[in-house]
């Protein structure tokens, strides 16, 4: 579902021609295969363990549920504006993009391949609620393997980028994976968090978090808020080509080297400061106001360019 504050996209002059150009399509509306097709150079994608292999989940049949031929994730290699990348895209409509044993193994395998092949980047197009509950233990183990493989790829000098602009966003264990990536690229439609809104409401009550308040959900988990908190490195418009531009911008600004202990300690300090600065806030709005943004209540209504201009005025405490 679209966030309630999302504005209707104005037709651009090129919209008529754009119908046949998959790269200007909405990232949000596209499915996993369409996202990959739109991001990569034409005909450059080569899938690993494709649907004809029928590597479906072994855990769904005993539960009397049909599986998917690709177990809900497409992995492979291709060229993004001429740079060789490994890429994975989760199919959010299949079991909420949940990570099961096979799904997870495909992601882990892709990341491990990056260590030996050294592509320009590994792109993870996340669209997931986290662990697939049907495969609880296998899914949890898969998440830990994905985490380890992500860090191993980064330690080998390969950038791992999380692209989040989908309906499910990145929650649960895959929210953790996203934050272990070299960079997170989001659109305002994307969401990133650990426990999902419904989970929080179920466990802690509606006074803690009203999952039906869609505007609140996006003010707390949405791309704009994640950008203002410094968790999304780049915020882009909801177009597949905008995500491609952001990948190049992120790669040009990244250096996967240096002292990881120093970086970890810096991050720990930053997070400690953040909880001290914002720990009592109940809503993204309060944080934005505290960041010194004028008229913070208008932020959800701004398009990406206007929002970035408004966000640039924020002062400390910033992140």
């Amino acid at each position: 579902m679209k966030p309630p504050h999302a504005k209707a996209t104005a037709a651009e002059p090129s919209a008529v021609n754009a119908v046949h150009d998959s790269s200007t399509r909405s990232f949000y509306e596209a499915d996993a295969r369409a996202r990959i097709a739109g991001l990569l150079d034409r005909a450059s994608f080569r899938e690993f363990v494709g649907p004809c292999r029928r590597m479906a989940s072994p855990h769904l049949t005993p539960l009397d549920q049909p599986g998917a031929f690709d177990d809900g994730v497409v992995v492979g290699e291709g060229l993004l504006r001429g740079r060789r990348v490994l890429i994975a895209a989760q199919q959010g409509a299949f079991l909420g993009g949940g990570v099961g044993e096979v799904h997870g193994a495909k992601l882990t395998g892709l990341l491990e391949r990056a260590v030996t092949e050294r592509p320009a980047a590994v792109l993870l197009l996340l669209d997931t609620g986290g662990v697939r509950l049907h495969e609880a233990n296998a899914g949890l183990i898969a998440i830990s393997e994905i985490l380890r493989a992500t860090l191993a790829a980064r330690a080998a000098g390969v950038a791992v980028l999380a692209l989040i602009g989908s309906g499910n966003g990145a929650f649960g264990g895959m929210g953790i994976v996203a934050r272990c990536c070299s960079a997170v690229l989001m659109s305002e439609e994307g969401r990133l968090s650990l426990s999902g809104p419904e989970v929080i409401e179920t466990v802690r009550g509606v006074e803690e978090f009203d999952a039906r308040d869609r505007a609140l959900v996006w003010r707390v988990t949405g791309g704009k808020h994640r950008f203002l908190l410094g968790e999304a490195n780049l915020l882009v418009a909801d177009r597949i080509d905008a995500f491609a531009d952001a990948v190049l911008a992120a790669l040009d600004g990244l250096h996967e080297s240096g002292d990881s202990l120093v970086a970890l300690e810096r991050e720990q300090t930053r997070l400690s400061q953040r909880i001290a600065d914002y720990g009592d806030c109940r809503d993204g709005l309060e944080i934005w106001r505290r960041q010194g943004i004028a008229e913070p209540e208008r932020l959800p209504l701004l398009d990406t360019a206007e929002f970035l201009a408004a966000a640039a005025t924020r002062g400390t405490p910033c992140n």
Partner: peptide, 10 residues
């Protein structure tokens, strides 16, 4: 193409 996959298990 050798094969084609459309739709989603939902």
């Amino acid at each position: 193409e050798h094969h084609a996959l459309v739709g989603v298990v939902a």
